[in-house]
Nucleic acid binder design. Structure first.
Length: 904
RNA sequence: GGGCGGAUAGCUCAGCUGGAAGAGCAUCGGCCUUACAAGCCGGAGGUCACAGGUUCGAGCCCUGUUCCGCCUACCA
């Protein structure tokens, strides 16, 4: 092995393949080769001037803070299959890689780093902190990109982008400013999801809900006129300080007496009204709802419809503010809750406390509890944008699988304005300035120096934009927009977006909105939604549960191609993938099989065969005609499956062809010619072997780029050693051959039946047996197929002599089988006890009986002959006849055997 | 509460427009046959969740039920 490895290192082109496939070496070498040669860097001119069709994909940019996980691995594999396939189809393919600056996530990483040094971001100040993040990015930001490299992704590295790089920042400003001047961005005081820890607003979809055990407190609110009380249920008693009303259902007769009156707000003492609103659920709690507009989303909405004031009592860090009674000011909200409960109890206003399970919003980044909070934020008015994005599906953009359309519509139909400001430092700072002197608000792409109105000093908005704001522009910002670059002209709109459904809303819908609005064209023609990768139990992989299968570890152990093939084989549309290491290991065997079949081929291909394929086809043996026929079918299967995103079918089709057909049958049958003396036959079979192997490498290359390229580079007669740029193999209609397929099926049946007899009767494998076949009732080509391939039957079924002909018959003491009408005899004399064979035939007959009964029932069912299509009826009748024949023959053969048994 | 998906061999899953149930892994038996023991040959193993319906015919279409998973809204 060692000398082979050394040979490998010197260069792949001259060296024969080493005995074992060494993925790490091969992957590193070809990965470097592709990048250094810019193999995957297309020239826009070939589209704009050369008339080539464009095919483009923008990678879903992983977070710079991220590490490659199985979801990425699947995502990259599928995109790479599409890109490599489309190159084979002659398209000009651009696959844009890049990373996302991931505002909150990245800021948190660096803040954690600072914490270890005993510092906080405020100690550094904004500028220094941002410098620090850039520094971090310089050191660690390429980690995920290098991991993408290891997947073999055929991205154009010269097109790599970062959502915070200069060009993209320009695009972000352009979009913000234009939306603002179009009235689609506004600023206002609204209630938002607030993370006290991250100290920022979050979008609705950045809030995750988790079940929590809480308490439900019931509190008395006395009527101001002394005419009774209302009991209100709440999980957050501390917010009561900001209550502005109590609401009941308008038809709730228990409370009609109170509507329109005032109640006294406990501990505060002020009067607040009792209002009626159908929003209130009569069944829940007491049916009385306290309204705290500043600290509850729904209360906020109710307050607006009822014109109630908004009184925040908790500040943006989670402490009680000046609106709270003096006794509570400055308390953390949790401490305040305790004090309030105690005070209420003391005053006899607390009815009771009960356990209460409910789901609580958490920050998707730091898992702190989200507190609704009123503050000044920037919003995108999404209504008009969403409408256009909705209308474009499926007319201009199709979603695969289509069931996701409904989810997409659902979300867009219920969309609320998008809060885009974040109170953090790492991100695109909002391009808005306020004049300190006259209050003038400037929103523009270029930094202003002073107020154009009064010349006063300007302060830029402190907030940065939601990370998804820049991600939403990704399909065109990466291509150079707002400049009209050649790249943009050639490759926008992109061909397909490949992603998991978890970011259908976050990202896909927003790209649709922005793409349509700013480019007047959808950003992608197809959206392919792939599965989530789960663990063996179907659970989401996560670090905390420790069920993560690390793709990099799998690559190290089994090679990239094995991992890619596994993910491809499991990527059936619309289903989650339950992955286990076992499966990856299993498909490594397949890589090894391919490798060894190539080694076999090379051993038998001293150079390029002299014969052309057409010459080789003349008088070609069955195996050659058959495998070439199958190759044509596989080309169709692979092409159609890829175009229809049926990735698992690509894998399945190739697996079956390579292993079960090419290796198990063709290669075994070809050995006769390859090892034989007939030079002409040898050369012809070599040509077929080379043709099938090389074209199979092309077909398989999109799924397994490395091993195929490595093999390709040592195949004789290949002029262009760059497999990634080789065209999809041309069709050869002259190789279509149904007769060969039929003949081969029969041949396989005969060999199989013979092998079964041998093994089932535990005949010593080394023992060569005679074989007799009666072809009298076989299909018309049977005799020819068997005589032509008699030597192969001998070889494959370990037979001494094959005596084939119509009416031939074996001794009564024979192992027997019936294949498509032909009777097979394996004389058993002195070899085995006949009892075993009688029993085996009983079993076979039992199977036939079962099938026969089922088919008879079907055919004789009332109406079948009349209603079913004629061709089906005919086919079923033929099947039945075949069964009947086989049954009769087998029974007769068994009788013969039994009589031999009796005679001893 | 609303929506979506799943239930097929011991395990993980295929099964396109309805026409005699498939693969991989695991298992059992036999083979170191000169590309591959990471291999070769053969066997066993399924009332396709349950109940109805449509049809000449249902794993596939329709209705309902039961479990499982996910998404989404709400939870005072």
């Amino acid at each position: 092995m060692s000398e082979n490895s050394a040979g490998n290192a010197s260069g792949p082109l001259e060296t024969a393949l080493p005995k074992g496939y060494e993925p790490a070496d091969v992957e590193a070498r070809w990965g470097r080769h592709w990048e250094e040669n810019k193999t995957f860097t297309p020239d826009p001119a070939e589209v704009l001037e050369g008339g080539k069709q464009p095919y483009s994909i923008v990678i879903p940019p992983p977070n710079v803070t991220g590490a490659l996980h199985m979801g990425h691995a699947l995502n990259l594999t599928l995109q790479d299959i599409l890109c490599r396939f489309m190159r084979q189809q002659g398209k000009s393919v651009l696959w844009v890689p890049g990373t996302d600056h991931a505002g909150i996530a990245t800021q948190n990483v660096v803040e954690r780093q600072l914490k270890k040094e005993g510092k906080k971001r405020d100690d550094l100040g904004r500028e220094a902190f941002i410098d620090r993040v850039w520094e971090w990015r310089k050191d660690y930001g390429s980690r995920i990109l290098n991991q993408i490299r290891r997947m073999g992704a055929s991205v154009d590295w010269t097109s790599e982008r970062f959502t915070l790089d200069e060009g993209l920042s320009k695009a972000v400003r352009e979009v913000f400013v234009r939306l603002f001047h179009e009235g689609l961005i506004y600023k206002g005081n609204y209630i938002v999801n607030w993370c006290n820890r991250c100290h920022t607003a979050l979008a609705d979809d950045e809030v995750e809900h988790a079940p929590k055990k809480g308490k439900l407190y019931r509190i008395r609110y006395k009527l101001a006129d002394g005419g009774g009380e209302l009991i209100v249920a709440t999980t957050r008693p501390e917010t009561l300080l900001g209550d502005v009303a109590v609401a009941v259902h308008p038809e709730d007769e228990r409370y009609t007496f109170a509507v329109g009156k005032n109640v006294i707000l406990p501990l505060v003492g002020k009067e607040i009204p009792v209002i009626a609103d159908a929003y209130v659920d009569r069944e829940f709690g007491t049916g009385c709802l306290k309204i705290t507009p500043a600290h509850d989303m729904n209360d906020w909405a109710l307050a607006r419809t009822h014109n109630l004031p908004v009184i925040p009592v908790i500040d943006d860090k989670g402490f009680m503010n000046e609106n709270a009674p003096a006794a509570y000011q400055g308390l953390a909200s949790a401490a305040c809750r305790e004090k309030i409960v105690a005070d209420l109890d003391e005053q006899g206003l607390l009815v009771d406390v009960a356990d209460h399970d409910h789901s609580v919003g958490e920050c998707y980044r730091c898992k702190s509890v989200i507190e609704p909070h009123v503050s000044e934020q920037w919003f995108v008015k999404v209504g008009p944008l969403a409408k256009a994005a909705r209308a474009a599906v499926p007319a201009e953009t199709q979603i695969f699988p289509p069931q996701w359309e409904k989810t997409y519509y659902e979300w867009l139909d219920n969309i609320r304005d998008w809060c885009i400001s974040r109170q953090i430092w790492w991100g695109h700072r909002i391009p808005a300035w306020t004049c300190e002197a006259c209050g003038e608000l400037l929103v523009q792409t270029e930094d202003p120096t002073s107020c154009p109105k009064c010349g006063g000093a300007l302060t830029q908005e402190h907030d940065v934009l939601d990370t998804w704001f820049s991600s939403a522009l990704w399909p065109f910002s990466t291509l150079g927009w707002p400049d009209e670059t050649d790249k943009l002209k050639a490759y926008y709109p992109t061909s397909v977006l490949v992603t998991g459904f978890d970011i259908l809303f976050f990202w896909v819908a927003r790209m649709m909105m922005m793409g349509i609005h700013f480019k007047e064209q959808v950003p992608f023609k197809h959206v392919y939604i792939h599965a989530l990768v789960r663990d063996e139990q179907g659970k989401k992989m996560s670090k905390s549960t420790g069920n993560v299968i690390d793709p990099l570890e799998m690559i190290a152990k089994y090679g990239t191609d094995s991992l890619r093939f596994t993910l491809t084989a499991f990527a059936a549309m619309g289903r989650d993938i339950k992955l286990s290491e076992k499966r990856i290991e299993g498909y490594r065997h397949f890589v090894n099989k391919i490798w060894n079949s190539a080694r076999f081929a090379l051993m038998n291909l001293p150079g390029e065969p002299a014969a052309s394929l057409d010459a080789a086809l003349a008088n070609a043996p069955l195996a050659n005609r058959w495998i070439l026929h199958r190759l044509e079918e596989v080309k169709d299967e692979v092409e159609n499956a890829t175009l229809e995103y049926r990735f698992n079918d690509i894998a399945q089709s190739l697996y079956k062809f390579i292993w079960n057909e090419f290796c198990d049958w063709f290669v075994e049958m070809a050995k006769g010619d390859l090892y034989g003396e007939d030079e002409k036959a040898k050369d012809a079979t070599r040509r077929v072997l080379l043709t099938v192997l090389s074209e199979t490498m092309v077909l398989l290359h999109p799924v397994m780029p490395f091993v195929t390229q490595e093999i390709w580079s040592v195949l004789p007669g290949i002029t262009d050693k760059e497999l990634a740029l080789a065209p999809f193999p041309a069709r050869r209609p002259q190789c279509r051959n149904e007769a060969a397929a039929r003949g081969m099926a029969f041949f396989q049946g005969v060999v199989g039946a013979t092998r079964t007899i041998r093994t089932e009767l535990t005949i010593d494998p080394a023992k060569k047996l005679p074989l007799i076949i009666d072809t009298a009732d076989g299909y018309p080509g049977a005799q020819a197929v068997l005589t032509e391939n008699a030597h192969l039957i001998q070889q494959l079924a370990r037979i001494e002599t094959a005596d084939i002909g119509p009416g031939k018959t074996g001794p009564r003491a024979s192992g027997t089988a019936v294949v498509e009408g032909a009777r097979i005899f394996v004389p058993l004399k002195g070899i085995v006890d006949f009892g075993a064979e009688v029993a085996r035939l009983d079993k076979e007959l039992g199977k036939l009986d079962k099938q026969f009964a089922a088919l008879t029932a079907k055919l004789s069912a009332p109406g079948f002959a009349g209603h079913a299509p004629a061709d089906i009826v005919a086919a079923e009748r033929e099947k039945l006849a075949g069964l009947e024949d086989a049954k009769a023959k087998l029974a007769e053969l068994q009788e013969r055997l039994k009589s031999a048994l009796v005679e001893g």
